[in-house]
Design a protein around this nucleic acid. Structure first.
Lengths: 112, 112
DNA sequence: CCCTATGTGCAACCATCGGTTGCGCATAGG
DNA sequence: CCTATGCGCAACCGATGGTTGCACATAGGG
């Protein structure tokens, strides 16, 4: 029932800015702090901090080339995160539907 | 593509303590700051703050009776939150699968 | 070869958040 | 009436998401 969820992964994906960053990197096959910040409403430094966190939890990897540092999404790890999200939503969905069924049964006059 | 998501709802549900609180209230049909905190590893005051936030975003409602304040989950609003979670996971899932298909195509030697 | 433009990294600072402790107040009930 | 209990408020603390400012390294045209 309760969360078999890796809170680190969940909260990494929980931030809206990080979600948009992952989205951008997926769409363009990667990015740098500078290029990402150009498409986001936050500064390069904020993006850099997020990239650091994302790398810490393994959702992205980076490689320095020249004076640039390119980041790439680790699709496997993101897939695992998505899987966890969906398992939590599924659990709640089930519980909500159970409650709905009970409510309907009560309304029909036959409690269990 | 990008998040048609209500960030307030998402981040309300993003906190692990709040998830457990919602879970408990769903299971027991409601609760107070005190009763919830007895089953959680945090203080009553921490729970009270979370309840305040949850009420602000409409995921719970409260009613004072005597010296108690009972909270109840708004199932409709929670259902909406769950729906948004699942729409985001679905979007990412689709994108990851698309990338996987492309990768396989390239490996087979036939790019598009 | 130098000088400038560009991309990074590091540090200080701020507000918010999740958490704590401590206190005062209101009410339920022997 | 007096005590136990539930609640609310305030101060404080560490982490986090954000900012500004600065120093440093490298790419590349004069």
């Amino acid at each position: 029932m309760s969360d078999t969820v890796d809170d680190e992964l969940w909260s990494a994906v929980g931030d809206p800015t990080r979600r948009r960053m992952l989205d951008l990197m997926l769409a363009e096959g990667g990015g740098t702090a500078t290029t990402l910040s150009e498409r986001l409403p936050v500064t390069r430094q904020a993006v850099a901090k997020h990239l650091q966190l994302l790398e810490r939890v393994g959702l992205v990897h980076s490689a320095a080339s020249g004076r640039e540092r390119r980041f790439r999404v680790d699709e496997g790890q993101l897939a695992r995160a998505v899987e966890q999200l969906s398992s939590v939503t599924a659990a709640w969905d089930a519980r909500l539907q159970r409650i709905k069924r009970i409510a309907e049964a009560i309304q029909r006059g036959q409690e269990n």
